[in-house]
Structure formats: structure tokens, C-alpha cells
Amino acid sequence: MSTRTEITRTAPARSALDAPAARVFIALTRIALGFVYLWAFVDKLFGFGVATPPEGSVLAGQSPSAGYLSHTEGALSGMFQALAGNPVVDVLFMLGLGAVGAAFISGIGLRLAALGGTFVMGGIYLSMLPLSNNPIVDEHLLYVLMGWMLAAIGAGSALGLGAWWQSLSWVRGRRWLY
């Protein structure tokens, strides 16, 4: 006589990331990170006097990279000082700040935003080595890691346009555009 084994089906385990409160905090983290980049872009462009005085703004004809890069003192300062004021570096820096900020705020293209953020904040991190307060970690490295974490968990669909973006026919299947 055979014994019948009954298999009970259970719902797949839910991740804590699926909880409504977690999705709200993920979205707020994504938007706040985007604002870090976008504010730096806007302040350097217009010179609101917070980090960039009006006379130091891009619209006043100033280089957004010269002020910082020409005064680096770290181990790689020679390399970064050579980049100071270079028009190509200035354009890439401003495009990086603006595009990364807009992507994180909207939830669109987070993988590309994480890559762009790695170049922008990773470059700033490298320009500061050795760090003065902590031998390994500062906020620039945290911004890079946070960007990749948000991209990895698909944070663009948490109160953002990520799900809509991924549903577009020319984006669907191209995971690097997510």
C-alpha cells in the first residue's frame, strides 16, 4: 500500500524590501541621493552662494572643476590638478551631476546613474586620498555604494518612474538601461 504524501504549497518568502514602509524609505533614500547630485549641479550652474558664489558659477564663465581640483593635496593631487579647468572635464562633470541627479530622483536608468555616480563621486573620493577623518570611508564612497545598492534592488519602481521606464519596448530586455 502506498502512502500519499501531501505537499503544502506556501507563498514564496517575502523580502523585507517588499514591505510598504521599506519601499517608502528606499524611495526617499533614492530621491535624497539624487538631490545631492542635482543640487551640486544647480549650485555650480547658477552660483546660489551655498557652495558656489554667483561670480564662481558656470553661467558667470567659471570652470566648475578648477576651484576644487586645483587645490587637491592628496596622493593623486598631481593627476587631479592637471585636470582642473579642462573644458572636457567641466562638461563631463556637469553632465554627470545633472544626469545622475535627475535619474535618481525620477527612478529611471539607475544602473547608468550608479555608473555615472561612480565616476563623479569616486573621482572626488580618489582626489582626497589619504582621507583626513577616516582612513577608508567618507561620504563620497557611501554615495557610490548607495547608488549601486539602489540600482541593484530596483529602487526606481518605489515611488518612481522605474517600472514605466522598464516597460518601454526599447528598454525592455536591455537591463543596463534599468
Rank of each mutant, 00 (worst) to 15 (best):
A75C: 12
L38A: 11
V58Y: 07
L142P: 05
A40Y: 04
S169P: 00
N133A: 14
G61D: 01
R174S: 00
L97I: 04
F80W: 11
L83M: 15
D138S: 03
I108V: 14
I136Y: 15
F46Y: 14
E6W: 08
N133Q: 15
G107V: 02
G85W: 05
R172L: 04
S57Q: 05
H140L: 06
R23M: 12
G116K: 11
A82Q: 09
G96W: 10
R14C: 04
A75V: 15
A51Y: 12
R14F: 06
A155F: 06
W170S: 01
I7K: 13
I26A: 10
E139Y: 13
H140W: 04
A16Q: 10
L17V: 08
L141C: 04
E55H: 09
L92V: 15
M94V: 03
T8L: 15
L126V: 10
T8A: 15
F93C: 14
N134G: 13
L159Q: 13
P12D: 13
T118Q: 12
I153N: 06
D90R: 03
A22K: 05
T118N: 08
G107F: 01
G101T: 10
L110D: 00
W164C: 06
A151R: 03
L38I: 08
S2T: 15
A11T: 03
V88C: 10
A66L: 14
M1Y: 07
P53C: 07
L83Y: 12
F35E: 07
S169N: 04
W170H: 06
S77T: 12
G122V: 06
V88K: 06
Y143R: 08
D18E: 12
G98R: 08
T72N: 02
I108P: 00
F80H: 09
V120K: 00
S106Q: 03
V144W: 10
S167N: 00
D138F: 05
G56D: 15
A103T: 07
K44M: 08
S70P: 04
Q81C: 03
W170N: 01
T52Q: 08
S77E: 13
V24N: 05
E73Q: 12
L69I: 03
A99N: 09
D18T: 02
N86Q: 11
W176M: 08
A102N: 08
